[in-house]
Each structure stands twice: as C-alpha cells, then as structure tokens.
Design a protein around this nucleic acid. Sequence first.
RNA 1: UCCUCGGUAGCUCAGUAGGUAGAGCAGGUGGCUGUUAACCACCUUGUCGGCGGUUCGAGCCCGUCCCGGGGAGCCA
Length: 457
Amino acid sequence: MQIRIKNLLKQSPVGSCVQVAGWIRTRRDTGGFSFLEVNDGSCLANIQVIAQGSLANYETEIKRLSAGCSVRVEGMLQTSPAKGQDVEILASGLTVVGWADPEHYPLQKKRHSFEFLREISHLRPRTNALGAVARVRSRLSYAIHTFFQERGFSQVHTPIITTSDCEGAGEMFQLTAMAAGDGPRGAEAREFFGRRAGLTVSGQLQAEVYAMALGDVYTFGPTFRAENSNTSRHLAEFWMIEPEMAFCDLARNMRVAEELLTYLLDDVMTHCAEDMDLFDRFIEKGLLTRLRGVMENEFARITYTEAVDRLLQAKKTFQYPVQWGIDLQSEHERYLTEEVFGRPLIVTDYPAAIKPFYMRVNDDVRTVAAMDILVPGIGEIIGGSQREERLEVLTARMEAAGINCEDYGWYLDLRRYGTVPHAGFGLGFERLIQFVSGMANIREVIPFPRTPGFAPC
RNA sequence: UCCUCGGUAGCUCAGUAGGUAGAGCAGGUGGCUGUUAACCACCUUGUCGGCGGUUCGAGCCCGUCCCGGGGAGCCA
C-alpha cells in the first residue's frame, strides 16, 4: 500500500509493510549500507530509509543515488534506534524512477540563497522553505474559501479581461489580439473586443454588481498591475481577496476584515504547525509569538485625523512632513503600527481628495468612509471602504475625478435601481502569506513571480 | 522610476599599489557496521555580469547597459 509520508508519520504503523514514493534529499553511506532521506512533498519531514547492502541493486543503483532522484521504496516501518527520527523504513526493495545527474542538478544539500532559488523557480519548491511556503499558501487559500462559504458568501468569478479601469488602482496591462504591424491608427474598431481591453487591476466593481443581487459575495483571483515597482512587497501579477457586502456599513466591514485575519492565522497555525515552526526557527525568529499576539489582541482603531495628530505629536522627525490632507507614507504607517500600537491598526476616514471616487463621502464632506489595516513589518495589508451608494454624490465625484460617467453606465445603474449601502475590502494574498510566514520578499511567496523584467516561464 | 550597495568556480564568498585567481561547501574516486549539514584521504572546476574605453598589461581604473540586495515612490 503506497502511503504519503505525512500520513505515515501520523499513523506510524510500526511493524507493517509500507510503500512510499518521493525524491531523495541525501544519501549517507556507512560501511555496507546506506541511509536515504526521502521527501514526497506531503510535509516538511523526510522519512529515513535504511538500504542494506544485501538489496539486489545496492551496488548498481542505490550507491549512485543523489539529491533529486525519484524513487519508490517498500519495506517495514520500524522504530529507529538512533536519535533524529522516531521511525524509519527498513527497505525490502527500492526502484529508481528517475535519475538526477549530480554534476548538473542545481540543488545541493545545503542552504541556498532565495535569490539563487528564484533563478530556478521550477526546482525551488523541492527545498524545505519553499515547500513550506507552498503548503501554507494552499492551506490559506482553502481557509479563505471556508471562511466566506461558512458565512454565506458566494464566490464570484469576476473577469480577468476587462474594458473598465478601476480608477486609481494602478496602471493596466493593455491586451490585444492584433499582430504587430496591424498599426495603431484607427485600430480600435478592429480590436478583438471592439474597444481597448486590459488585464484587471481589481474585481471590485464587478463584485459590486453581484453584491447587489446575491448580498454577500467575494472574489479571489489574479490581478495585474503594470507598475514599474521594484520592491519586496510588489508584483506585476498577484492574487487578491475582495469581499463585497450589501446592506453593510464601514463598521461591519472592519469586523469582517479583522475576523478574517484572525481566523486565517488560527487555521494555519493549527493545520501547518510543522511548516510554521520552520518559519519561526529559520525565517523570522519570534514569528509565532508575534502571530499569537495578533490573534489575542483586538486591532487598534483610529481615524485618519487622530493618526495625523499622533504623528504631529511624535518625538521623531519624518522624512515626509505631516499635515492633514497628505497620504500617509510608509514611515508614518510603520511608526503607528509598530511603535505606537505594536499590533495591527485600522485607520479610518481618510481625506476624500486622496481616495478613489467610489468611496462613500462622510457627513463632514471632506472625508470618506475608508479603512486601511496596517500590520507591523508589512504595512498596508487590507484596504477597503463603504461604497458611495447615492447616485448624485457618486456622479459628482466621478466628474471631479475626470471620469467619463458614460463609460460606467452599468456601474451607475446599481445606484439607479435598488441602491443599498454596501462595503468591501481588498486583501493582497501574497502580503498575507508574507505576514503569516515572515518571508521577507514577496517573490518567494508566489510560485512564479512576475516583476519588471522577470517572467522566465 | 529614484537613492544606495553588490555581480569572481555549481553554491556562499575572499582577492593584491592594475602583472593573468583562491577558500569552504557541492561534485568525482577510495575508506568506514547506525548516519542525520555524517566523517577521513585524494582529485576536478572559471569568457572574474555584458559591451566599449584608458594602459605594454584590467577581476581591480573610467563610461554605459543588464541583473540582484537594502531603502523610497506607486499600491495589495
């Protein structure tokens, strides 16, 4: 019976015959037999295999095994007499499924830099850290769906190709089916969609459509930004979670966001304990303590105006001077969440002038019902707002922003016909994984990162 | 895109006032009856990021481009 190593270690059926299949991590020879570390990706841990010299292919094959070779092993599970592992497989047979020429296989049984591993993105999930990231990413994805589904949210598959720019969300990748040389002049009429199209920068506007029919919805899909951003927190292609809730104000919006984050932390710490422990030991010392602190303390909440006051009172000089009306800079956000509060912080009610047209204007007229969640180490992880549901107010803001209302007729119809207060937010999936894993560079938490000048496969 | 620091063996790095390159690990061969970053002995490895310039001579100096780290802007 073939069994995955994760289940084998959990059930630990000592004395029974088992079969595993995986990749060799290392081989150690001692006299007439060998120790093999086999990993099958089901968990961080390897299973130690004892291959005795009496095996038929010991000299011809087993002694040639090296890192990266794939094998199938069968044998008896026994308690290990040595320290380092509780159980091991005493092999009765071993089949080499695929060789990995050790002269050329780039992964060695020592630590590699993440920069180097990025150059071999097709092999890096075979390392401990990147394998752990992949499992944690998968678990978080599952938990996100569980969280929303259990609360009655419907998932909406918003379009990846779009003809409407979500104003203010960054540069859109242009998309065309025309061959080079078909010429730009008068080409719009011959475009595949009959008009300019691009890759979505956000599913929010389309999610609002379904929120106005199904009530509570969420999107979870890829988004694209053609920004020339070269930082450890930006990607040209990333995944975003965007819930959108009808009959919902900013207060409930914040509650859902906070509940989501603490739910996800609890889930991943329960179900990926071994991988999280790896991050705690080798990626960010004190990670687990930090995350428990986030789960046990309520998020701090202040308004933008209070935040500005705090910054003005700070005994600290900022590179960017503070005054009411400015957008908060990284240094300001870091100071507030890391030094003043030392825990996640929700900042609300930003000046209308620095926020997009769809955010609901407050009674004071000069601020909007926006909220950003800032977390230590990452900065902004969630951005959201109550949406403007009043047609006249919305059109006035669109005109002020220089947006052609005719292009957004479908969006304005949501306010013309049965409009309701509604709210939502966006959570960057990769930033969430960074926050949870302690990984410093966002390029390590997505399987195939896309950044300016980098998209190898 | 801006500031800053880097790019030398498969990996991580060292390198002399400009004179033709080196250590650890990995890899190869042999040894070792319980190893676990195994150990011991011996051996192999380079267009010194690309292009151009200065010079009798450039890994080292100058110019430029590419890539990466840290920080910033934009944002998720």
